[in-house]
């Protein structure tokens, strides 16, 4: 490498680095802002045969529609075996004569969403909740009652991502 080439390349790369001093910070402050790209629920329309875009996170189970047909359990059977059908004799839903509902073990779930695609009764959805960390492994097992609670709305503001060629990608707050 010639010395002129060395100096020229050095100046170009240092100049590029200096330009980045005046750009905005790329990162978002995570616990203070939530940075999910979408806040919609992942749902499946069995009549049309296609799904609706959304974040594939924790499930939401509509117990008034679940018939206990076990199709979600069968779909999960060879993928991660996270879904288990649980008998709930105390429930009294007219459509669910067998009185069995799915429970999900999030220590095993891979969030592929094929259980949602398997449900023919609009009973299973996936919500944009992915913060499922627990201190005890057994707490990751969600019973049908826990799954049927609608997800709590995260009160932290959403990151307003701004894409600017001159100033970079940054969180505009």
């Amino acid at each position: 490498m010639k010395i002129t080439e060395f100096v020229k390349g050095f100046m170009i790369s240092v100049n590029t680095g200096i330009q980045h001093l005046f750009r905005k910070r790329m990162t978002t402050m995570y616990p203070e802002t939530q940075n999910y790209p979408t806040l919609d629920m992942y749902a499946y329309d069995p009549r049309k045969g296609i799904a609706v875009s959304g974040w594939r996170g924790r499930h939401y189970l509509d117990m008034t529609k679940c018939t206990g047909c076990q199709l979600c359990y069968i779909a999960c059977e060879n993928i991660s075996e996270a879904i288990e059908m649980v008998p709930l004799p105390e429930t009294n839903y007219p459509q669910n004569k067998k009185k069995i509902f799915p429970a999900v073990d999030y220590g095993r779930c891979v969030f592929c969403g094929f259980c949602v695609d398997a449900c023919p009764f609009y009973a299973l959805y996936m919500t944009p909740v992915a913060e499922l960390s627990e201190y005890d492994r057994n707490d990751l097992y969600y019973s049908p009652y826990e799954l049927s609670k609608p997800p709590a709305v995260n009160p932290t503001p959403r990151a307003k991502e701004k894409i600017d060629i001159k100033r970079g990608v940054y969180d505009e707050r």
Binding site: M26, T27, N35, P37, T38, Y42, S53, G54, W55, R56, F111, G113, M126, E161, I163, V169
Partner: peptide
């Protein structure tokens, strides 16, 4: 950091 931009764009459509 630049990879993150595309990952979030892909996650918008695919959900993962």
């Amino acid at each position: 950091g630049d990879r993150e931009l595309l990952i979030e764009t892909a996650a918008m459509m695919t959900g993962a």
